[in-house]
Structures are given as structure tokens and as C-alpha cells.
């Protein structure tokens, strides 16, 4: 095999693609938390969530990947952008960061990371004895409408209540402040 053929070996290509997706995710996450300009954060969030969709693809569920893109990126991030537009005074200057706060946050985050890593790498993860191999969307749809029908309906109600609540909060606070 030539080096070029080696390069385009499916194993290596696959791993390179995985690395690209993971780097999108992390880059997006860092862009979401570090900059002071909120629009940068939102854009970083969008990038991150796209990467997470890719990871879901790697985890064997294209349906979930698409749902991620639709719901998170398409709905949630756009509504965050709307909220920014409606509230944030972008023309005002941003106050400086406070070092103790950042240091405290960093150390706590590090602590939590350490604990999680300890638990991840020290637990002997045992797969279940019998594993089914049915991943398809058909089965998912069937489960949603038969076995997990109650949860499905509850989610709908939750969303309805959330929307009503949001309308209510906005209108009350609007009346109060005006």
C-alpha cells in the first residue's frame, strides 16, 4: 500500500473524522464559556451541539443525532438568540472579570472533573449479559407509541405547560414593570 492509500485507509479515516467531530465539540464548548461577548457564546454553543450530534451518530443513533440538530440547534439556540436580542444591551461595555471568582469556578470544575474521571476509569464496566441488536428507528417509534406512550404524552403536556407558563410570566412581569 502506498502512504496515500494508507492515509485513506478506512480505519485511519474513521479515526480522523472522529477526532474532527470531538474537536468541534470541545472547541464549541470552550467558545461557549470563555468569551465575554454573549453572541460569541451562542455561536460556540451551536458549534458544540452540532459536534454532539456527530457524536450521537458515532454512538449508533442517527435519529437522536437528527433530533439533536432539530431541537437543540434549531429551536433552543435560536430562541436564546432571540432572548439576547430582546434583552441584552450589547452597546454597553462589559465589566471586567473577577479573578477570585474565575479561580474558584475553575477549581470546583477541576474537582468535579477529577471525581468523575476517578469513577469512570476505576469502575469495571460490565456490559449486560444479553444484548439486543435492534437499533432501528422503526422499533424506536413503536416503543414510543406503545411502551413509553405515557412518557410521550407527559412530555407533550410538560411542553404545553412550559409554553403557557412562559407566556404568563412574561405578561405579568410586563404588566408590573410598565
Amino acid at each position: 500500500m502506498t502512504p496515500l492509500q494508507n492515509f485513506f485507509d478506512p480505519g485511519i479515516l474513521g479515526q480522523a473524522a472522529f477526532a474532527v467531530v470531538v474537536s468541534f465539540t470541545f472547541a464549541g464548548a470552550l467558545i461557549a464559556v470563555l468569551p465575554r461577548n454573549i453572541l460569541y457564546s451562542v455561536l460556540g454553543l451551536i458549534l458544540c451541539l452540532t459536534g454532539v450530534g456527530g457524536i450521537f451518530l458515532y454512538l449508533g443513533s442517527p435519529f437522536i443525532a437528527l433530533m439533536e440538530l432539530l431541537i437543540y440547534v434549531g429551536a433552543i439556540c435560536i430562541s436564546i438568540v432571540f432572548a439576547i436580542m430582546l434583552s441584552y444591551p450589547l452597546h454597553l461595555s462589559l465589566p471586567k472579570r473577577k479573578l477570585p471568582k474565575v479561580a474558584g469556578a475553575f477549581s470546583v470544575a477541576l474537582l468535579v472533573f477529577g471525581v468523575l474521571i476517578t469513577i469512570i476509569f476505576r469502575t469495571p464496566w460490565q456490559p449486560a449479559a444479553v444484548r439486543s441488536t435492534d437499533w432501528s428507528v422503526n422499533t424506536l417509534g413503536a416503543y414510543l407509541l406503545t411502551r413509553y406512550d405515557l412518557a410521550f404524552e407527559v412530555i407533550s403536556i410538560v411542553l404545553l405547560v412550559a409554553i403557557l407558563g412562559a407566556i404568563l410570566i412574561s405578561s405579568i412581569s410586563g404588566r408590573r414593570s410598565s
Binding site: K101, G104, A105, L111, L116, I119
Partner: peptide, 20 residues
């Protein structure tokens, strides 16, 4: 709020570690 949250997360992590 965020200082309270810091303490909460730190405590949570330590308790989890302890239990583990």
C-alpha cells in the same frame, strides 16, 4: 448565586467520591 453553586458542586463531588 454562583458562590452558592460553587459550594454545592464541590460538596456534591466530594460526597459522590466518598460514597464511591
Amino acid at each position: 448565586l454562583q458562590y452558592n453553586l460553587m459550594v454545592m458542586f464541590a460538596a456534591l463531588a466530594l460526597v459522590a467520591l466518598g460514597f464511591y
